[in-house]
């Protein structure tokens, strides 16, 4: 065992690392916002939406939740071009993350909607709100507040899962680590450094999501 650790190369390759971190952050930012919006729409359909649409959304959710993200990514990037849908690496990565988080978050959000007391719907109806207006103005925000911790964990899981987008050559943090590894043969250092960065990103993301929760939910509101 005569391996000497060396982290001096970090200076030389820091532009790649910074770029990789930026892309990972961009991916999760887009993925989280669009994925949660998609999740809200799907949760609405499954809890309150038109009957004919429910099985379609249920099939989408089950299909995504029971297949690996890597395969979803490959299917979108390699498979869809044969249907004439040609996406760049980053577009494919973004789309895969949105589709993936959309399915998981819809299940979480649906649980929040279903925990809404009946009286809330009735109160909305008695104010002459349409079912959709009741959902939008009365039910949605408290439902999200109820499940916000679970939703936050899922966003962090998707962020960590985004490491595999390097496999379709999207230049995220893992891609940078692979690049450095192939140039310097310093595999251990490259992966240790990026693992530590991922750990910090996960901790940071969790804090950001707590603060987002403070910003969008009325404080001290009874659940």
């Amino acid at each position: 065992m005569n391996y000497h650790f060396e982290f001096g190369w970090l200076f030389e390759y820091y532009p790649q690392i910074v770029k990789g971190i930026a892309i990972t952050i961009e991916l999760i930012a887009v993925g989280a916002v669009a994925g949660i919006l998609l999740g809200i729409v799907c949760a609405w359909v499954r809890a309150l939406g038109p009957a004919w649409l429910k099985p379609v959304v249920a099939a989408y959710v089950e299909l995504i939740r029971n297949t690996p993200f890597l395969i979803q990514l490959f299917f979108i990037f390699f498979g869809l071009p044969s249907l004439g849908v040609q996406l760049s690496e980053l577009q494919a990565a973004n789309l895969a993350m949105v589709v993936n988080l959309g399915a998981y978050s819809s299940e979480i959000i649906r649980a929040g909607i279903q925990a809404t007391p009946r009286g809330q719907f009735e109160a909305g109806a008695s104010l002459a709100m349409s079912p959709f207006e009741t959902f939008r103005h009365v039910v949605l925000v408290p439902s999200l507040q109820r499940i916000w911790p679970a939703l936050s964990s899922q966003v962090v899981i998707v962020m960590l899962g985004s490491a595999v987008v390097s496999q379709i050559a999207a230049e995220d943090l893992t891609f940078a680590a692979n690049f450095i590894q192939s140039r310097t043969f310093r595999a251990f250092e490259a992966y240790i450094v990026s693992t530590v960065v991922y750990l910090m990103l996960a901790i940071l993301l969790r804090q950001v999501l707590v603060m987002v929760g403070w910003a969008i939910f009325p404080r001290g509101a009874a659940q």
């Binding site: 065992m1 391996y3 962090v156 960590l160 899962g161 985004s162 490491a163 595999v164 893992t174 680590a177 590894q181 595999a187 251990f188 992966y191 240790i192 990026s194 693992t195 991922y198 750990l199 996960a202 901790i203």
Partner: peptide, 23 residues
């Protein structure tokens, strides 16, 4: 905290490439 806070892919890389370096 460590294993839930880092990507499984990185754990695989470290196990695969990392240990190899120690002979």
């Amino acid at each position: 905290e460590l294993f839930q806070g880092t990507p499984l892919l990185m754990q695989l890389f470290i196990a695969f490439f990392g240990l190899g370096l120690f002979g």
